[in-house]
Each structure stands twice: as C-alpha cells, then as structure tokens.
Amino acid sequence: MKLYAERPTRRTAQAVADLLALLLTAFAVWLGLTAHEQVLKLQAPGDGLVDAGSSLTRTFDSAADNADDVPLLGKALAGALHTGSAAGTKLADAGQWQIEAVGQLAFWLAAVLIAVPVLFLLVTWLPLRWRFVRRATAGVRLRDLGEAGQDLLALRALTHQGLSRLASAGDVTTGWRERDPDVLARLAHWELERLGLHA
C-alpha cells in the first residue's frame, strides 16, 4: 500500500495535510472536553438548590414530627410544617433539574465541538487521501509489471493527460498504436508523474 507520493513536493504537501488533519482533530477533542468541563461548573447553583431543598425538607419534617406531640394544635401545626417540607422538596427537584439540564448541555456542546471538525475531515480530507492511496498503489503495481504495466500506464496517460500536452508532444497516438518504446515510456512516465510516482 502506497501511503505517500514518491515525488518530494507532493509527499511534503501530503505530510503537511495529514499533520494539519491530526492537529485539527486533537484541537477539536481538547476544545470539546474543555467546554464540557467549563459548562459543568454551571451545575454549582443546582447543587446548592438540592442541598438547600433537602436541608429545608429535613428541618420541616423534623419540626412536624415534634409538633405532633403538642396538645390540641399539634395536628394542624404538623400539617402546616409538612407544607414547608413539600416546598423544600420542590426546591431540591428544581436544583436536580438544573443539574441534569446543564449536564446534557455540556455533553451535546462537547459532542458538536468534536463532531463537526471530525466530520469535515471525513468528508473532505479522508476521501482525497484514500483515492490517492488506491491510485498510487495501483500505479506501483503497474510499474512493477514491466512492459505490460507500461502499456496500461501509457493508455491511462492518453486518457488522463491534458489535450494541450498531448498535442505538443507530437503524434503520440500513432506512436502508442505502433508500440513505439520511446512513446510508451514517455506516456507511462507522464502517468506515473501524475500519480506522484517515479518512473
């Protein structure tokens, strides 16, 4: 498998593109995790509400239990105190809801910050690299076949080279049909050059 071109300029460009893709992925992961941590700090007020609500509920429940022992007014007083206990429960529930909402926000924000750049690379950079690897690997195999591979490379050069280059090279089609070794070698060289490979 041919991962990089053999020609220095193209190989350098590929290495730089790969490095940039790796750096972009690492930066996206770092940014996503950092944003996740920072957003989770917004859970502190929710934690405070849960603690305050739980404490309020315990206090009112304890007072209601003690109020039951008061003669005559004990039941009414205990009922009123249990109402305060219900308010503490609602306060704790509101805090819990805030904690869960912030947790979900932190998760989805991190997921988006990581996924968008990675998906961009999967749609743009990865197909280009994969196409190069496939073509360059096939080009190396054809080059290694010798004369038979040279014929196929020459044929591909006829179909992939620009018309201006073919026209300026003289009658290469006649030379290809007559199997002129010089013309075949030149066409194969052009195709290997297009693939980033040495002849």
Rank of each mutant, 00 (worst) to 15 (best):
1 M>H: 13
3 L>E: 10
4 Y>C: 02
6 E>R: 06
6 E>S: 02
7 R>Q: 14
8 P>A: 07
8 P>K: 08
9 T>L: 15
9 T>W: 12
10 R>N: 06
10 R>I: 09
10 R>H: 09
11 R>Y: 01
12 T>E: 13
12 T>H: 13
13 A>F: 03
14 Q>R: 05
14 Q>L: 06
15 A>T: 15
16 V>F: 07
16 V>T: 07
16 V>H: 04
17 A>W: 05
18 D>Y: 04
19 L>W: 11
22 L>P: 08
23 L>I: 06
24 L>K: 07
25 T>A: 12
27 F>C: 10
30 W>R: 13
35 A>L: 06
38 Q>N: 15
40 L>P: 06
40 L>G: 07
40 L>A: 09
41 K>S: 14
41 K>V: 11
45 P>C: 01
47 D>G: 13
47 D>T: 13
49 L>S: 08
53 G>V: 00
53 G>H: 00
54 S>I: 06
56 L>F: 07
56 L>S: 09
57 T>W: 00
59 T>H: 10
59 T>K: 03
61 D>A: 13
62 S>I: 05
62 S>P: 07
65 D>F: 09
68 D>T: 14
70 V>A: 09
74 G>Q: 00
74 G>A: 00
76 A>V: 07
76 A>H: 09
77 L>F: 06
78 A>Q: 02
83 T>N: 13
84 G>K: 05
86 A>D: 12
86 A>N: 14
87 A>P: 02
88 G>R: 01
90 K>V: 12
96 Q>G: 13
96 Q>H: 14
99 I>V: 15
99 I>W: 05
101 A>H: 10
102 V>P: 04
102 V>T: 15
104 Q>C: 11
105 L>F: 12
107 F>R: 11
109 L>Q: 08
110 A>F: 02
111 A>M: 09
112 V>Q: 03
113 L>Y: 05
113 L>D: 02
113 L>E: 00
118 V>T: 08
119 L>F: 05
120 F>G: 12
120 F>A: 10
121 L>D: 01
121 L>W: 03
123 V>S: 03
124 T>A: 04
127 P>F: 04
129 R>M: 06
130 W>P: 08
131 R>G: 07
134 R>V: 13
134 R>D: 06
137 T>M: 04
139 G>P: 00
139 G>C: 00
139 G>S: 02
140 V>L: 11
140 V>C: 10
144 D>T: 10
145 L>P: 01
146 G>F: 03
147 E>M: 11
148 A>L: 10
148 A>D: 13
149 G>D: 01
153 L>K: 02
154 A>Y: 04
158 L>G: 01
158 L>C: 06
160 H>Y: 11
160 H>N: 13
162 G>S: 15
162 G>K: 12
163 L>W: 14
163 L>Q: 14
164 S>A: 14
165 R>E: 11
167 A>N: 09
167 A>D: 14
169 A>T: 03
170 G>I: 01
170 G>R: 11
170 G>M: 05
171 D>P: 04
172 V>N: 00
176 W>R: 10
176 W>L: 09
176 W>Q: 12
179 R>V: 08
179 R>Y: 05
180 D>V: 08
182 D>V: 15
184 L>Q: 03
185 A>S: 11
185 A>L: 09
187 L>M: 05
190 W>G: 01
190 W>V: 07
191 E>I: 00
191 E>Y: 03
191 E>A: 01
191 E>H: 06
194 R>N: 09
194 R>L: 09
195 L>N: 00
196 G>H: 00
196 G>Q: 02
198 H>L: 15
